[in-house]
Design a protein around this nucleic acid. Structure first.
Length: 592
RNA sequence: GGGCCCGUAGCUCAGUGGACAGAGCAGCCGCCUUCUAAGCGGUAGGUCGGGGGUUCGAAUCCCUCCGGGCCCGCCA
């Protein structure tokens, strides 16, 4: 974080010059002198001097930090050249997670209906949510990951009904969530569908009473195999039926009814319902009234979301938890009536849900504000991501128009296996390498783009192992690891032997922590993914550097001192790539 | 009708006030007697959707138009 220190020093000097502003230090373009620079044009008006003069004055007044060799005025910019040895020392410094700050951040993601197998749309949710949870934890937050199980929803009821209605028996081989999903799709194709509604209703009521939990759990466990294969982590499962039984909804409504903006109109469109007037919080609404309780007494789904959000942030209590028996996640806890009382009391929440839920999520924040918690409303974030198209078309779970995550994982692994076979026939564990590369390709393709951009899932690109991909970063990592493996132990580096090649690589290495903090701040992993691509590219360029037809940067055969320097740098690079990949939930193979 | 988001090279995308707009894929030309060629170097390719404005400076901020996606139910 040399940049931060430099920014600090500049801010101090500018303050003494009478302009108390903090300027961002940026990398200088390749063709300009120095490593970093700040533009000073913005100060010209206030100081009533040309920017060139300001650059000169700042240079004269600025006590240079010890790691800066020289400040160089370039037009209206003041650039800085770092001392090579200080730069290298910083690049070689082992990176560790940022110090813990108090306060829980609760990340909810996945939350797939427990009624059929996961498809590519869920993939984006999981990849984003899992990555942001890891990034926040590295950035010093205490993170809890929650997966919400909507076991009283219509989808679950329909699947359970269909399984029974069609008298389907499981052959024990097909993955159970796929089996259940086929029943669901069949029901929606059934010409009798409308006539079956009352029977489905009955299942729905049984679910609300928590009677069919084992049947739902069976589907959930099958889905969880996929989540686990994707390398996603969870701390808590919360079942909708437990929320219902804990009476969170009633408690939340009781709180809300204390607000003058929540009331029961006696006449008009909303007569008999409990409605919330969101206009004090969300201006410009055509119709600012939202039904919480229908006139028949049932709750709307966002009323339940509101109650759940209140629980997450410690406004309400009432859920109980016990360890969750499952083969994938040893420490996982689940809500359960017989468990122990627990409330996370999150000071901040991130709900990872697609952009179509933006409106209901805004209502959740509105409810927090109306209930007297405007400060919490600001900390209730919606990580909204755009939907995933499948080869240019909208997916549909009901019609079975989707590609399952299991299928994609399998296909990616098959392709990766073929490539490992071809490129590295002596690989000690091809299967494991193929699994890691497949995972890298799939997850990276989901997080490298900004969440708010729609992505089109195309096999050809998502499973590509070349170019701007996860495997490109993994390959860079494996290359570095290969050198370190051959090197064994080594002694002290001689920083004074550094060439411009080491310098360039070190400079790129310095940006890692900033990329992580940016990603955490903006709540988007793509910032980190893009950085890792840059870093891997920088390393590959270093690796391949040639002068006069000869390798310019051999590591193992370099002269003493320089060899150790290069090894240390490669090690730092390798660890940085591994850490960065891990923050995206992607394994870093040592050999591939 | 109201609201949110997107529009950057043939395609997929970074860059969201600062130094001549960057990658990948596809195309063309090179590089394995080099620590893994899943790689590297070079070349070609752009009115940053159009127009107007603010600014010393705009892909980035404001207005407007065009094109595309999504949301707006006492469904979930």
């Amino acid at each position: 974080m040399l940049r931060r220190a430099l920014e600090e020093a500049i801010a101090q000097a500018l303050k003494e010059m009478g302009v108390p502003v903090r300027l961002k230090v940026a990398r200088a373009p390749k063709d300009k002198p120095g490593d970093y620079g700040v533009p000073l044009f913005a100060l010209a008006k206030e100081l009533r001097k040309p920017p060139q003069a300001i650059a000169q004055e700042l240079k004269d007044r600025l006590p240079l930090p010890e790691f800066v060799e020289e400040a160089i005025p370039v037009g209206g910019y003041l650039n800085f050249r770092l001392r090579t040895e200080a730069l290298l020392r910083e690049a070689l410094r082992p990176k560790a997670p940022f110090p813990r700050r108090p306060g829980v951040v609760l990340v909810e993601h996945t939350s797939v209906n427990p009624n059929k197998e996961l498809h590519v749309g869920h993939l984006r949710n999981i990849a984003l949510g899992d990555a942001i949870a890891r990034i926040l934890a590295y950035a010093g937050r205490e993170v809890l990951v929650l997966n919400y199980i909507d076991d009283t929803g219509r989808q679950a009821a329909e699947t359970l009904f269909a399984l029974r209605h069609y008298g389907l028996t499981w052959d024990g081989k097909e993955k159970y969530d796929h089996f259940a999903g086929r029943a669901y799709v069949r029901l929606h194709q059934d010409p009798e569908y409308e006539r079956l509604q009352p029977a489905i209703e009955e299942v729905l009521h049984a679910l609300e009473r928590g009677e069919l939990r084992e049947e739902v759990n069976r589907i959930l466990l099958a889905q969880m195999a996929t989540m686990h294969a994707l390398n996603a982590r969870y701390d808590l499962l919360v079942w909708e039926s437990d929320i219902v039984r804990a009476g969170l909804l009633q408690k939340a409504l009781a709180l809300l009814e204390q607000s003058p903006h929540v009331f029961r109109p006696r006449e008009g469109k909303y007569a008999g319902a409990l409605v919330m007037d969101a206009s004090p919080v969300i201006p410009g609404l055509e119709d600012p009234f939202f039904v919480l309780l229908r006139s028949n007494g049932t709750a709307t789904y966002y009323a339940k979301d509101i109650a759940f959000q209140f629980w997450k942030m410690g406004i309400l209590e009432g859920l109980r938890f016990r360890p969750y028996e499952n083969p994938y996640y040893p420490g996982l806890r689940t809500s359960a009536p017989e468990g122990e009382a627990y409330t996370p009391k999150a000071e901040e929440t991130i709900n990872v849900i697609d952009v179509r839920q933006s409106h209901p999520q805004a209502l959740v924040r509105a409810a927090l504000a109306l209930a007297g918690y405007p400060n919490l409303a600001e900390k209730a974030h919606h990580l909204a991501y755009e939907t995933v198209l499948l080869e240019g078309r909208q997916m549909s779970g009901r019609k079975g128009l989707a590609v399952s995550v299991d299928e994609v994982l399998e296909e990616a692994t098959r392709r990766a296996r073929a490539i490992v076979e071809e490129k590295n026939p002596d690989h000690p564990d091809k299967e494991e390498a193929a699994r890691m590369v497949a995972l890298g390709a799939i997850r990276f393709s989901m997080v490298k783009t900004e969440p708010k951009k729609q992505i089109d899932f195309r096999y050809q690109e998502a499973l590509s192992f070349e170019g701007d991909t996860g495997p490109y970063v993994q390959y860079a990592h494996a290359r570095a690891h290969s050198i370190l493996r051959k090197a064994g132990e080594w002694g002290a580096p001689d920083l004074s032997q550094a060439t411009p090649y080491e310098r360039a690589l070190a400079l790129d290495l310095l940006d890692f922590e900033e990329a992580v903090l940016d990603a955490a701040e903006e709540k988007t992993p793509h910032v980190l993914a893009q950085y890792l691509l840059d870093l891997a590219a920088s390393w590959n360029a270093y690796y391949n550097a040639r002068e006069n037809g000869q390798p310019a940067t051999p590591v193992l055969t370099a002269p003493e001192g320089l060899r150790e320097l290069r090894l240390s740098l490669v090690q730092s690079l390798q660890r940085t790539l591994a850490t960065g990949l891990d923050l995206l939930g992607i394994p870093a193979p040592e050999v591939m």
